[in-house]
């Protein structure tokens, strides 16, 4: 089955992963800007990173027939440094001319600090000014419930925000309804230990339905599985769920969300035979 991984950090994966993903049916991915595993020393480090996301990675993906999209921001962890964050946010508009850039992301909270919240709002100010889609990282583990509520408070506090143009990512059992009930899209991340497993993700789908929800691997430099979305497909099949339902979650839903991007150009995605 053709699928889209709407959240994966290919910069930290080897080319063989693209090959294996393509063999499993991956036709498109979107790669949010994130923490590199260390704090970068200057805004120039981010300029090079954004260049990598919009120029280098799409070419690597194209070798395997995979469409590569990206999201730009300074991640929540480095957002603790407010002056660096403001320099990075000022860089973003020059990259917003690329049709493969879907919007601003993954912005969010990490340890739910006042500085992180300030920079989250300043990213939203930019996104509203430039009419961008927004992809949101919610914190991990014990910080997730509190952080997700704080993020939704900020989204609802800003009358310019259109919920259907926002995806709240890394939702789990205790946060999925907060996102859906607010009218937002949401993403479930299939990641060892700190996030969701394929089985629990299918449990969540059985509880909340198939609208405005997608699944991703968030594959990165940590122990993670770039083939996690195909694992979800297998788990849904194992439970006897219809192919149309599976396709909606792993292909149609992310595509419907991406298509709202102001620069969207319909790609020639492979047709299912």
């Amino acid at each position: 089955m053709n699928y889209i991984d709407p959240h994966i950090h290919m910069i930290s994966r080897v080319t063989d992963d693209y090959h294996r993903m393509a063999r499993c049916g991956c036709v498109a991915i979107s790669e949010p800007a994130f923490w590199a595993g260390f704090d970068r020393g200057s805004a120039d480090g981010f300029r090079d990173y954004f260049h990598h996301l919009v120029e280098v990675e799409p070419k690597r993906a194209a070798q395997f027939g995979i469409q590569h999209y990206s999201w730009l921001c300074i991640n929540a962890k480095e957002a603790e440094n407010v002056s660096l964050s403001r320099d990075v946010i000022a860089l973003i508009p020059e990259f917003l001319t690329k049709p493969s850039v879907l919007g601003i992301g993954e912005i969010g909270l990490n340890k739910n600090t006042p500085n992180e919240a300030t920079i989250f709002q300043e990213h939203m100010d930019l996104a509203m000014k430039t009419d961008e889609l927004i992809l949101i990282h919610t914190p991990h583990l014990e910080d997730k419930l509190k952080g997700t509520r704080m993020i939704i408070d900020m989204l609802k506090n800003d009358p310019r925000v259109k919920p259907h143009r926002v995806c709240v990512d890394h939702v789990e059992e205790h946060t999925v309804r907060l996102a859906l009930d607010g009218g937002f899209w949401c993403g479930m991340t299939l990641y060892p230990t700190s996030k969701c497993t394929p089985s629990r993700a299918v449990d969540i789908l059985e509880m909340v339905g198939l609208d405005r929800i997608m699944a991703n691997s968030a594959g990165d430099w940590g122990k993670s599985d770039p083939l996690a979305v195909p694992e979800l497909i297998l788990e849904m099949r194992r439970r006897g769920h219809p192919e149309s339902a599976i396709k909606k979650v792993v292909h149609d839903n992310p595509l419907e969300f991406f298509r709202q991007s102001s620069r969207w150009q319909e790609p020639a995605l492979r047709n299912e035979s």
Binding site: K144, L145, E173, H174
Partner: peptide
């Protein structure tokens, strides 16, 4: 999940 979560102040 809720048990292992920090408190939230609205």
């Amino acid at each position: 999940q809720e048990l292992f979560s920090l408190c939230y102040d609205p």
